[in-house]
Each structure stands twice: as C-alpha cells, then as structure tokens.
Amino acid sequence: MYETIAFYLFAFLTIAMFWITVTTNNALYAMSSLAAGMIFISAFFFLLDADFLGAVQIVVYSGAVMAIYAFGMMFFDTLNEVKERNPKKVVFVLSGLIALMLVVIFVSPIISSKVQALYPMVEGVSNPKEVGIVLFTKYLVPFELAAVMLLVAMIAGIILAGKKMEKSETETEQEEEVVFEKGVEQ
C-alpha cells in the first residue's frame, strides 16, 4: 500500500522535475530541477531494494555531476534566456517511430527466449554486501576498466578546462577599456 503511494508520488515528482528541466528557458532553473529529479530517482532505487545503487545515485549524480555542472556554468553566461529551436511535428513523429522500431528489434529476441537469472540474489544478505560479492567476482574486469576510464576522463577534463587558464578574460577586457579610455582622452 505505502509502496504504491510512494511509487506514484515519486513518479509524479520526477516527471514534473524533468519536464521543467526540458522546457524552462533559464539554465539555472534547469540545473536545480535536474538535481531534484536525480534525488527523486534515487527513491525508486530504495523502493526496488537497491540500497547501494540509491546511495551511489545521490552521491554521484546529485553530488558530483551537479557540482561539476554548477562549476561549469560559472564559465558560461547563464543569466541570458536560452534560445530554443521548435522542430516540426514530423521530426518528433519520425524519431519516435525510429525509437519504437529499435525497441521492437532489440526486445523481440529477448521475449522469444525465456529470461532467467544469471546471478540469482543470495538470501539473507544485505544489498551492499551482495553487490560487492558480484562486483568483485563476476564483474571485476569491467570494474577495473571503469576505474581506468574515470582516470582518463579526469585527466582529459583537467587538461581541456585548464587550457589558457593563465589568461584571464576579465583582466584583458579591463586593459582594453583602459586603453580605449586613454584613446578617448587623447
């Protein structure tokens, strides 16, 4: 009973938040509603007995990713109204049909063959423990690859964002203004 109420409540909240993210013209509103939606998504993970996934969702998405976006937005002019294109309805219909076709193509072989649990859940073990057991036995190589990928992404982010950091854009603007004022005086 409570589970059903919680599911529909969080479903409504998540859809509303993400809808605001997609439709608003203000980048700051979009970012805050996206962060709220991420936290509401983690509620579904707790409802689905995936405790560890829910914690990771809050820490990584609402914490790290949104913090990166917030820092990144300091580089951009976020106070301006965002312009949008309004594509024709044909675009929506065609892309929707293509998406539906892809779903049918990928799902039909799965439905025709019976799906069985590859790594059945162990009884009487808490979810984080279970996740640890599977992650460090069956999925050890992908886990290490993900670690290397995150390292590569970190180095790439530092190098890309750190380019020409010694040149401050505001300082050069001020210098130009000073030069311009001197020219006016002369």
């Binding site: 560890f52 990584v60 996740v131 999925y139 993900a146 992404a153 190098i159 890309l160």
Partner: peptide, 24 residues
C-alpha cells in the same frame, strides 16, 4: 538478478566521465 544493478553502476560511471570530458 543482480546484473541489472551492475549495469546501472557502469552507466553511472560512464555518465560521470562523459560529464567531465564533455564539460571540458
């Protein structure tokens, strides 16, 4: 089955690195 949760973890890792590189 726990495989679904595992894939969700890897998707989160990929999303995090995508944000770092993309924002750079």
């Amino acid at each position: 089955d726990l495989s679904g949760q595992m894939f969700a973890f890897f998707i989160i890792a990929i999303a995090a690195s995508e944000v770092a590189v993309g924002l750079g």
